[in-house]
Structure formats: structure tokens, C-alpha cells
Simulated assay, not measured.
Amino acid sequence: MHTARQAARQRRRRHRLMLGTAVILTAAGVLFCLVTAMLPGPEARAGAGAGARAGAGVAAPAATRMGATPPAPTSPAPPAAGSPAAATPSATATATTAAAPPPAAKKTPPAASTPAPSAGRIRPDTSYKGVATAYAAADGNGACLFGPSDDLMIAAMNTTDYESSRACGAYVRVRAANGASITVRITNECPLPCAPGQLDLSEQAFAKLAELKVGRIPITWSLVSPRTSDTLSLRYKTGSSAYWCGIQVIDHRNPVARLEVRTSQGWRKLPRTDYNYFLSADGGGCGGAIRITDIYGEQLTVDGTALLPNVAQPTRVQFAAH
């Protein structure tokens, strides 16, 4: 019995020893896992190395730097409202035009780094030589299709300098050899045999320079930018719609170099006809905002022009004098 009790005690000691060993091993394993988890991995070490290199003088890309300013959008900003000054209706405006508020407009001066667009052959600060003849101007209408006018100090430009209506609306100062001078507005075209430099003046204008019976006199002439209290107007051609339209500028102080309409793709330049309308053959931009640029580079943006055929719609703006 003594031997049996000794064997039992030995078995109990071995069991406690094995249990203690297992507990120690388990605790050691848990401790190892905790220590391993707290150490940085290879990705963290690589990131720390890259950060140290950037701090040593390598700049991060602009798109990812804190405080970087994103590029400004390139889409055109909507035009702001123009001056509240009242507009003077064109002579051809109807009662409907007078009742409607003038379209909103804004001015954009030419950028100093951008060369001013040219209206064609007729340029500022240039003197031209030619001859003056006379014609019966009747009601003052002509190839430029401005319509009848009470002001008959007008002229027809030779075809070469008329240049597909680019001369329409230009004011020119005409000087005769005898010292007399007169300012006229180009409203018509003088076809061949009118030579380059030639102006066919209304009889009323020619009479300011010489007697009508003379018939033909040598002249010099140059572009001017006269004082005027009028604001310019816009007119859609008869037959204009959302699918096709022609747009005309009226009573502008300086020659018009370009006309654009705003479409869903941005500003679109319209071609000019020899009868002084800018055409949108597919209707793009018809009835929307219109941007007009003169030969000095000044831009006028007009919004709110109704798509009303054959109605002169006055605006609140005019090109600056030069």
C-alpha cells in the first residue's frame, strides 16, 4: 500500500509539472504575439523612408500638396447686368421694341497682351487716297441694310474696301483738296468701276465739299471714332428662328470685327455676309447671349436679346471712343 501511495503522488507531481509548463508556454506565446504586432511592418518602414526623402528637398506633386489651388474652370462666366442707363431706340425700332426692356450687357476692355482684331482693309490711324463721286441716296438705305435714315451724311464704299460688308457702319473723315471736310458713315457699296480708295458720297455730303456739277474730286479719308450718345442695337434678320438666324449690329461707333454667340460648347464665331448679317446656319446660339468685338479689341456682351425677326433691339452699351 505504501508503494501504491508513492506512485499516486508521483503521478500527481508529473501532472502539475506538465500543466505549469503548458501555462508558461502559452503565456510566452501570447507575449511574443503582442510584441510582434507592435513592431512597424515593411510598408510602414517604406513610407517613413519616402517621407524622409521628401523632407530632404523633393517636393510633392502640386495636386497632392496641402493648400494647392485647383485650376479655374474654363467655361465662360454668365454676363453681369449692365449699366442702368436708359437706351435710345434705333430709328427702325417698333412699338414692341420700345416696350421691352433693353437686353442686359457688359463691357470687356481689350487685354493689353492681346492684339486687337482687324476689321479688314480700313485701319485706324491710316490715311487713304482716292476720289469722291456723288449719288442720289434717296431714303439713306443701302447694301449694309441699316434701313432708312434721316441722316444723309453717308457714303458708299468701293467694293475692294467694302470687303464683304466689313466697312459697314464705319465713320470716315473725308478731306478735299480745297480744305473742306465732312464725316460720313458707310451704309452702301459702290460696285465696279469704283476703284480702291473711292467713296461715292450722297449728294448732300458731296455738296459740303464741292459743287455737284463738278462730279468728281480728289480726296483723302481716314477712319474716325466719333462722339455719340446713341447705344448700339441688335436685329435678327427676317425669317430667323431657333433653326437659322442672321444677326446685325446697328449704330456702332467703331467697325465691328467679330460677332459670336454663346452655345452649349462655348462662344462660337459667326461668318459675315456681304449684306452685313452674321449667320448661324444651324441655329446654334440664336436667341442667346451675343458678344461683339470692335477693331480695337473691345468686347460687348449682350444677354436677353429676344429672337424677334426684323426688330431693332436697343442695348445699354456702346464702344469706347478712340
Rank of each mutant, 00 (worst) to 15 (best):
P109S: 01
R65Q: 15
G29E: 05
I122T: 03
I290T: 12
P89V: 10
A62K: 14
V261R: 02
P73R: 12
T3D: 10
A132H: 09
L25G: 12
A207F: 10
R45V: 10
A86E: 11
A207D: 15
P101R: 02
S90P: 08
G130Y: 02
S149T: 15
R123V: 03
R53M: 10
L209S: 03
A134D: 03
T305W: 05
T21L: 15
W244R: 08
I217V: 14
E43H: 12
T94Y: 03
A320L: 10
A156S: 08
A105I: 01
R123C: 00
A63T: 12
A306Q: 15
G197Y: 03
V249C: 02
Y162N: 09
L279W: 13
A210H: 13
C168K: 05
Q10D: 13
K106I: 12
P84T: 15
R173N: 14
P148D: 12
P148E: 07
V131R: 13
V131S: 08
A167F: 02
A62C: 01
V224G: 08
R185Q: 10
L270P: 04
K107Q: 14
M153N: 10
T273I: 05
N310P: 02
T92E: 02
R272P: 02
V224D: 07
G283M: 04
A132Q: 05
T3E: 09
T114K: 12
D161R: 00
R14T: 10
A289W: 06
D125Q: 09
P61I: 01
V30S: 12
P117C: 08
L192W: 01
L34P: 00
T69W: 06
T97P: 01
V224L: 09
Y135L: 02
G20A: 15
F319M: 04
W267G: 05
R12Y: 04
L308T: 14
D151A: 07
R185L: 01
D200E: 11
